[in-house]
Design a protein around this nucleic acid. Structure first.
Length: 482
RNA sequence: CGCGGGGAGGAGCAACUGGUCGCUCGUUUGGCUCAUAACCAAAAGGCUGCGGGUUCGAAUCCCGCCCCCGCAACCA
């Protein structure tokens, strides 16, 4: 009997800038769900992430640095892969949209949509800035000129583009969106539904190669390349080996497994609407669930280089440790809504919950147990524990923060129990009774360490090890002194 | 202009299917001493942005207004 397949993927970050903490949030959330399904539910895991490497922005960035686009992306893609060790991620596959196989898959998806009659030619007319070599939208214009080139007059240019017949999918998309769990949280489902109900327009899916060569060639038309995200979206199935599926991963995980995507709230239209319509057109199963997270602001404002409030995930990890950042992303951030990051509150929460809460509890229990001659506990047995079942229920519904709250409730309860039963005092008067209490406390800490596994894998392992040896060499989280 | 989110004790958030405003951090006091000056308990602190309305009763529903944040860029 083969194990059930669980597929989870993040969106692919664009490689024209350093990894953003917002992406760290997305991938750490995905990591918790992945570890939960693999380690707690025993499912077989396919966890995908990667990099989006085509398109004008990257092409120009490469030119700026005097590099060939492929050489540029070869240099930048590993910087994203570095997140794996920095954040202790458990992803199993890293796809690059410049991978040969991915390119072929994107072309095959195109062919299937085209043979369905959903891709057609149309002349696109618009204002074009020669300086930027790109089309301007009305909203881009400043006094009728390109904001970057106020001395140049935008020219009206007409070019052939291919369009995708999104308008044909209104009914099917509404049916899709009404499925249980298709869009999480519920609020975003209403947003997507409303958007579809308001009427859908076909969208452009290609660019003239003469203007932009850095992309996937459109099959059977040498003059066109795919517009970046048509190709990028295909990664979710190309990573599984679609369409050949030589290893059977596509069948196992996409067709017969549970398919979960994570994405930022700005992605609703792309992921839940356009991508799903593309899948329908190509005759591929749609995504089962898409979980949308919020955005992280910094000091109450959107992060931006010009404001200078960008938070670098690597810096936080280096200074405070991987699990400190994971903790903040998972429990201090609302799971589905926006949250604000300030270093001050980050440190406050670190001291309160990691140093004083979790770290101190492990430390005091182990110290008492080892000095009282209590034996190390056997392997954890929390299968029927009601608190654990609630915790699982939250993880089953993607409520990551609430699940984490269960753990910290347990920490608080253990601290309270120590205060009420006073084993440190009892050990001098009624040693047997004290030992019994300490044995129970060790089991509690063991359960806490176990539940911590998907959230703070490294800390969980350290705590488990300390329990086995009844010795804690280093504090789990040293206090941050001001 | 428009669209969306939000204004709650010093700070961050829960309550938004109307019925004593809950939690965390911080502050003060008491307890404890096993622990990373940690832990436990208690207390102080709110006309829930403003003005109207509906109701026996509104943070919660309705109307008007004010303010903040996204929707353009680097960017999830």
């Amino acid at each position: 009997m083969s194990k059930k397949g669980f597929y989870i993927t993040t969106t692919l970050p664009y490689v024209n800038a350093a990894p953003h903490i917002g992406f760290a949030l997305e991938i750490v959330q995905a990591d918790v769900l992945a570890r939960y399904h693999k380690e707690f539910l025993g499912e077989e895991l396919f966890f995908n992430t990667g990099t989006d490497e085509h398109g004008l922005k990257i092409y120009r960035k490469a030119l700026e640095e005097g590099k060939d686009p492929q050489a540029y992306t070869d240099e930048y893609a590993p910087k994203f892969d570095k997140l794996k060790s920095a954040l202790h991620l458990s992803y199993t596959h890293f796809v690059r949209t410049t991978d040969e196989h991915h390119v072929r898959a994107a072309q095959e998806l195109w062919r299937r949509c085209a043979s369905r009659g959903d891709i057609y030619e149309k002349n696109y007319k618009g204002l074009y800035c020669v300086g930027d070599e790109m089309f301007l939208k009305d909203s881009d214009l400043v006094n009728g000129k390109c904001p970057n080139h106020p001395t140049m007059d935008p020219v009206e240019v007409e070019e052939k583009n291919y369009f995708f017949r999104l308008s044909a999918y209104q009914e099917k998309l509404l049916a899709y969106l009404s499925k249980d769990g298709a869009v999480i949280p519920e609020r975003r489902r209403r947003e997507a539904t409303q958007f579809v109900e308001n009427g859908l327009e076909d969208f452009s899916v290609s660019r003239e190669k003469a203007r932009l060569s850095w992309g996937v060639p459109v099959p059977e038309d040498e003059t066109q390349v795919m517009y970046v995200w048509f190709d990028a979206l295909t990664n979710y199935i190309s990573t599984l080996g679609w369409p050949e599926d030589a290893e059977g991963s596509y069948k196992k995980f996409w067709e017969n497994g549970v398919v979960v995507q994570t994405a930022g709230k700005d992605q609703v239209r792309f992921q839940s609407i356009m991508w799903q319509a593309m899948l329908m057109s190509a005759g591929v199963k749609t995504t089962d669930m898409i979980v949308y997270h919020g955005h992280i602001t910094s000091g109450g404002q959107k992060m931006s280089k010009s404001v200078g409030n960008v938070i670098d995930p690597f810096e936080i990890v280096e200074k405070y440790g991987t699990d400190a950042l994971r903790y903040w992303l998972l429990r201090e951030m609302p799971t589905f809504e926006d949250g604000d990051f300030t270093l001050e509150r980050f440190e406050e929460s670190y001291n309160a919950n990691l140093a004083n809460g979790l770290g101190n509890l492990v430390s005091r229990v182990i110290k008492m147990a080892s000095t009282s001659g209590v034996e190390a506990p056997k392997s954890p047995d929390i299968g029927n524990d009601p608190a654990f079942n609630l915790f699982k229920k939250y993880l089953d519904t993607f409520e990551i923060k609430k699940a984490a709250d269960c753990i910290w409730q347990r920490i608080a309860d253990a601290d309270k129990k120590i205060d009420e039963t006073k084993p440190f005092k009892l050990v001098k008067e009624k040693p047997e009774e004290a030992k019994k209490i300490l044995g129970d406390l060790l089991k509690e800490v063991q359960a806490i360490a176990f539940m911590l596994k998907p959230f703070l894998p490294e800390t969980s392992e350290k705590a488990a090890e300390a329990l086995r040896r009844l010795e804690l060499a280093q504090p789990l989280f040293p206090r941050i002194e001001k």
